[in-house]
Computed example of a mutant assay.
Amino acid sequence: MKVDEKRRNVRKVVDRLVNTRIENFMPDYIAYMTGIKNNEAENFLDELTLKGAEILRINYKFICPECSKVFYFEKANDLVKFQQNNYECPICGSEIPKEDIENNTFKIYVFDKEYRERRKKKWNIN
């Protein structure tokens, strides 16, 4: 499959998801749906977050390795602050070393609210 075809397939899946209840997703879901590699899906999704496209926003989630509590970060700065410190989980109280924070942090994609509204209006008109 050529690069442009992969890019189009990713965009098609994203355009279908925007009309669902799905709030966010990870690159591995898109890779699975399109039959491409995770890193390729992530690169194509990153293109949809750039100025001018603004279809998606990148958020991050961290899963505590001890209690499995999920923490969400909307800004990269908040994630960096979290990663720079050894952190104690407020739920289970365990110390989380920096390497565990890095290994349990995942990029997630969230639809831009304005884009989602435009797509829903367009979908309802048709």
Rank of each mutant, 00 (worst) to 15 (best):
L56I: 08
I108C: 01
M26D: 03
K6E: 12
K12F: 09
V10P: 00
L50A: 14
E114V: 02
N39W: 08
P90D: 05
L56S: 03
I63F: 12
Y29D: 10
E5P: 01
K107A: 05
V10K: 02
N38F: 11
E102K: 08
M1W: 01
N85D: 05
N39E: 14
F62M: 04
R118H: 03
I30S: 02
Y32H: 12
V110W: 04
K61T: 14
E74S: 13
V14K: 00
R57N: 14
E42K: 15
M26C: 10
N24A: 10
D15M: 09
S68Q: 15
K113I: 00
L79F: 04
G93E: 08
F111K: 00
K37C: 11
N85R: 08
P97F: 07
L45H: 03
F106M: 12
K51E: 13
K98F: 04
K122D: 02
K113F: 01
K61F: 09
L50T: 15
E95K: 15
Q84C: 15
I63R: 15
I108N: 00
I30E: 02
E54C: 05
C64F: 13
T49M: 11
E99N: 14
V110S: 02
Q83M: 10
I91K: 10
N9W: 02
E5C: 03
K81I: 10
F25V: 08
S68W: 15
Y109D: 02
V3E: 07
I30V: 12
N38I: 11
I55D: 05
F106K: 15
G52E: 08
E47F: 15
I125C: 05
K121W: 01
N43I: 06
P27E: 12
Y115G: 01
E88H: 10
N39S: 09
R119T: 02
Y72G: 01
V18G: 00
L17P: 01
W123L: 03
R119P: 03
I101R: 10
F82C: 14
E23G: 05
V13R: 01
E88A: 12
G52M: 14
E95M: 07
N104H: 15
N104R: 14
D28Q: 11
K107L: 08
R119G: 02
Y72E: 04
N126A: 08
P90C: 03
N24P: 06
S94K: 10
K61G: 07
E23V: 04
E99V: 13
D15W: 03
I91G: 06
R116E: 00
Y87C: 03
Y109M: 04
K120A: 01
V110I: 08
I22T: 11
D46E: 15
C89S: 06
K113W: 00
V80D: 15
N19V: 07
N9G: 08
K12R: 13
A53T: 09
R16C: 13
K2F: 04
T20W: 03
V14H: 04
V13A: 00
A41K: 06
A41G: 09
K75W: 08
V110A: 05
M33Y: 14
R8T: 13
I63G: 10
M1F: 02
F73Y: 10
I36V: 09
D112F: 01
G52D: 11
C67R: 03
K121I: 10
C92Q: 08
E54P: 04
